[in-house]
Write a protein that binds this DNA or RNA. Structure first.
Lengths: 222, 222
DNA sequence: CGCCAGATTGAGTTCTATCAACAAGCGTGG
DNA sequence: CCACGCTTGTTGATAGAACTCAATCTGGCG
């Protein structure tokens, strides 16, 4: 499995390690825990309706959201035997679980899922480090718009969830939303301002490409 | 491959998509480019000696280092058909490349590699967002110590590389190293202070677990 | 009506980027 | 040999961005 058993012709059967049986559809209410840290990681999940947040709790009790997953997406692929994070329903949720077993192949290319998650994690890593507060929020809105495929959509998570995802405070998130509204990049609607209208993808993009600081990362070289 | 072709029994052959032929060992001098963004991603690499940095260039020319890989590690697994990042040798490098072909199976479990990269990317994401400058540097030193398996080791990368990896300036990195020395967590040696002695793993850990700010992420709830 | 949760705004503080200067080592060339 | 430039790393002073604490606003609910 690891570099230790380096061998010219080992013919490792990746697929055989990851076979699952399809479960029945399940419904979970908002805020219910799907699995917690240290649970055995024996299932994979497909979201039919709703959304989840995957998060870790730090030693001091703070919460950091690693990713959101919404309808039509898979989650729960884990490296180790046990969960490294918690997963909760954000809103009412319908999902299908696939438990580890030798019965049948899971109806998705796990390799594809894994490399896509690497790619997404790297994109987020880059956004976290390189962007200002308003830039992160702009990038977040672009990501959500791309996922829903619409210019007008409703955020299914609170400002607190967004803050814990972007590594900001709720106040900074609110100020960034206000700032994007002032720049006429978006318009907000609804009681809790969770309905977002993207007025200008160009202006949104302009915010994300504006450098946080010229010396934060090394400038052009070679 | 994606959710679009959802199907109860598709029997997707992950392995068939990822077969390689072993290449001969190659040597690369320091700072040489292994591959660049948009190159076809047709090879996987195993590092025998040396280390590489994988990075992206932002629109404004700044550089962000996504990861370092050193001897005994694999790199180059990519989601798409083309490279999403650049890779360079940090120091003199010996590597073995495996080119895509139908000849034989690559001597590593790619699935294992992919899920480990997801895990590592998430850990870094968390460190980037939750930690102060000195906390990130402390986490970086802990990571490097774990990789080399020694309390005393030489960093193969410059302060600039570290800064571009941690999303800080070289000045902040230097100040953090000084701060860790003042706390007697580490001692530095060598002409360019790249030789690190970990004096107290406990004190190092204490720096990483110290909260950056109590309101940065949501406190204990539920 | 009082109370609460979610979102926003304002004022002050902290942290890090920025700009500048400095030190040490190394290579080059006169 | 030494002056010079160059690279790498470090330190100091200042400015700006985000956090912190506080207050306000809205709508929902008992």
């Amino acid at each position: 499995m690891s570099i230790a058993n380096f061998n010219p012709e080992p013919r490792i059967e990746t697929r055989s390690m990851y076979q699952f049986t399809a479960g029945r559809p399940e419904c979970r209410p908002a805020d219910e825990l799907i699995y917690r840290e240290d649970d055995p990681s024996s299932s994979l999940y497909y979201i039919e309706v709703g959304a989840v947040r995957i998060y870790r709790l730090l030693a001091d009790g703070r919460r950091y959201i690693l990713s959101f997953h919404c309808a039509g997406e898979w989650f729960g692929l884990e490296g180790g035997e046990r969960r490294a994070a918690f997963t909760e329903a954000i809103c009412d949720l319908h999902l299908i679980s696939y438990s580890l077993s030798n019965m049948r192949t899971v109806p998705i290319d796990l390799m594809d899922l894994a490399v896509k998650e690497v790619s997404a994690a790297r994109d987020r890593q880059l956004a976290m480090v390189c962007q200002s507060a308003i830039g992160r929020v702009a990038a977040f809105i672009i990501e959500m718009a791309a996922r829903t495929g619409a210019q007008n959509f409703e955020l299914f998570m609170s400002r607190r969830d967004i803050a814990d995802y972007l590594g900001l405070t709720t106040e900074s998130v609110a100020r960034s939303f206000t700032g994007l509204t002032a720049r006429r990049a978006i318009r907000m609607d609804g009681l809790t301002h969770r309905i977002i209208h993207v007025l200008s993808p160009e202006r949104l993009n302009a915010v994300t490409t504006a450098a946080r600081g010229s010396k934060t990362l090394t400038g052009r070289h070679s």
